[in-house]
Computed example of a mutant assay.
Amino acid sequence: MANDFEVGVDVGVDPDAAWRLAGDPVAIRDWFGPVSDIAVDGDLRTVTMGNGAQLLERLVDRDDAARTYSYVVESGIPGLTSHRATIRVVEAPGGSRVLWRQTATSDVEGYDIEARLSGVMTAGLESLRDRLEGAAA
């Protein structure tokens, strides 16, 4: 059971360029396929998924100089007692690396957020990479 994990993707653009897209809390709808719409009001982000489900998230701990921000899911995912995710961009050979970490607790026995989310998160980061590298071409 893995309820604290990270996925990442190398991107052939400089970290500042990657951060402009990865660090925009609204632009995630442009590269993360399951999201159909996002509305931000202050530090609250309402995420509408393609299946109609809505998540209420609080944006926390943003640091543009370090190219990182975190959000916590306050409601919308059944069984979770806590959830925190962090998106960050770091320098890497040939450009940058975008990392997405998830940490969760659940009152559901055997809950495994990595099994539930790692594939779709990796696909999202690959879409982000394709978008960034296509824009740089």
Rank of each mutant, 00 (worst) to 15 (best):
G124I: 04
R45L: 12
A18P: 06
I113R: 10
V47M: 12
L80Y: 07
G33V: 05
G95P: 04
P78A: 15
G50N: 14
R101L: 12
A66L: 10
T86L: 03
T48Q: 10
L132C: 05
A65F: 07
D10A: 15
A65S: 13
L80H: 04
D61N: 10
D63V: 12
S118D: 12
S106A: 08
A18H: 04
W100K: 06
G23P: 07
D130S: 05
W100P: 09
L44T: 15
P78R: 08
A115H: 11
T68N: 03
V98W: 03
G52W: 11
A123F: 01
A136H: 12
S127P: 01
G8D: 03
S75Y: 00
I113C: 13
G42I: 05
V26L: 14
Y69Q: 00
I77P: 06
T103F: 06
T46A: 12
G33Q: 05
A92T: 04
A85G: 04
G94E: 09
A65M: 02
L55T: 05
L80I: 12
P15N: 05
A92Q: 10
V47A: 10
L80T: 00
A17Q: 14
V120K: 11
L125K: 02
M121A: 13
G94D: 09
S75L: 06
P34S: 01
D16Y: 02
D64N: 06
N3Y: 12
A85D: 02
W31C: 04
L59M: 11
E57I: 09
D10F: 08
S127Q: 14
D24N: 13
E57C: 11
M1G: 14
L132E: 01
L56M: 04
F32M: 10
E126C: 00
A92Y: 03
P34F: 10
I87A: 03
D64W: 07
D112C: 11
Y111E: 03
S82M: 06
P34K: 11
D24C: 07
A2W: 09
E114L: 05
L44H: 11
P25T: 12
D112E: 07
D16M: 00
V11E: 01
V35W: 06
G79F: 00
V90H: 14
A136L: 00
G8K: 07
L128D: 09
T68C: 08
G134C: 04
D24L: 08
L21H: 08
G76S: 10
D37A: 13
L99C: 10
I28D: 09
T105S: 14
T81S: 14
L55P: 03
G94L: 01
V89P: 11
E114N: 06
Y111L: 06
T86D: 03
W31N: 05
W31R: 04
I28H: 15
L59A: 06
H83S: 08
E114V: 01
S96T: 07
A53N: 13
D30A: 10
D107L: 08
A135L: 03
L55Y: 14
D130A: 13
R84Q: 09
A135I: 00
L59D: 08
E114I: 02
G50H: 07
A53H: 10
G52I: 02
Y69R: 07
R62H: 12
